[in-house]
Computed example of a mutant assay.
Amino acid sequence: MTDTSRRVVAGIDGSPDSFAALDLAAEEARARGVPLHLVCAYVSPLLYIPYSPPVIPGADEPARKMVHDTAERIRLENPGLTVVENVVQGGGAAILVDESHTADLVVVGCRGRGGFTGLLAGSVSAQLAAHASCPVIVVRPAHPAVRPEGGHVVVGVDASPECGPAVEFAFIEAARRRVPLTAAHVWSHLPVTAMTADAPISYSYAQAHEDAERVIAESVAGWAEKYPDVEVLASPILAEDAGAELVAVSEHAGLLVVGSRGRGELAGMVLGSVGYTLVHHALCPVAIVRRRPARNQTRG
């Protein structure tokens, strides 16, 4: 693995989804002024012969040719962009998680080669979104990468600590794309305001709406001042299912950004139910952003 943190990594396997993701990855690398690393993981057939080499010589040649041809196309379409080719033996998810430790961003397609038709999100993209150390963008099928002049950026916010890195990433993307940023907060519980014999439980929609707007304002506080050219739109949404609501919002977005795990998620669910839903069903590219260790914080 190349020892540099200033790079964008694109996981490719020759599938249409990975090529769609590659276009967005090239754009991200060019905007950041960093190299683009194309990473292809392959699994070699085993030779079931005692004392034989563990892999068949030359098994990586198809992958290397695919990566090289792809790199040449990206160089032609993006003059001046440094494109590094990397073909590695091993499982795709493990390789890309390893790459994420020293990368600015990893971009993958939602579903690659070898996935079952019924699996809306391939195991590589889902595992990467759950375990990567840097932000991950998953590009959904039939929804190609959106150019800077495309749809606005949406960030899902709540009162959890995981929200901060996602908001920062969303502001950076909105500023780069020169589009508005919508901060969406989905709330479902109304606060109790009174309990009487005639009205055992009284709820205040106005108070709940005000609380939702406060959560949004606190989430973007500071970042709006740092990025004054980014128009910020508040979107408090009353609903039971945050994931389903954000999927609906994604239909008109260019990028949807969420933290790795929000409020109310089980500790054992590294990705979280909302992120899992979006990776499977969102109608635009999805960025999963988690708080990374201080020693790896390299974004500018």
Rank of each mutant, 00 (worst) to 15 (best):
L36H: 14
S18E: 07
R32Q: 09
F19D: 10
A29Q: 09
P16H: 06
I12E: 03
G14W: 05
S18A: 14
Y51H: 11
L24Y: 06
L24C: 04
D60G: 12
D23H: 12
M66A: 14
L22C: 07
A20M: 12
G33Q: 07
D17T: 02
L47V: 05
A63G: 02
E28A: 12
A63W: 05
S15N: 09
E61R: 13
G11N: 10
R30V: 03
M66P: 11
G11R: 08
P57A: 14
V55Q: 13
R75H: 06
D17G: 12
P45C: 10
R73H: 12
A29K: 12
Y48Q: 11
A25R: 02
V67H: 15
R73N: 06
V39L: 11
S44P: 05
L38I: 00
H68D: 12
L36I: 07
H68N: 06
E27N: 11
M66Q: 13
A25I: 00
D23R: 15
P45A: 08
F19K: 12
S18Q: 13
E27G: 15
A21Y: 08
G14E: 05
A29L: 02
G14Q: 06
I56Y: 14
L47G: 01
V34R: 07
E28M: 04
V55P: 04
V67S: 12
A41H: 09
S52E: 08
E61Y: 05
E28T: 00
M66H: 10
A20W: 07
P50N: 07
R32Y: 08
M66N: 04
L22D: 03
A20P: 03
L38R: 02
A25W: 03
G14A: 02
L47C: 00
I56L: 15
V67D: 11
P79G: 07
A10L: 05
F19W: 15
V34C: 13
E72R: 15
H68L: 01
A20K: 04
R75A: 08
V43I: 02
G14I: 03
P53Y: 01
I74L: 06
A31I: 00
Y51D: 15
P50V: 00
G14P: 08
I56Q: 15
D17R: 03
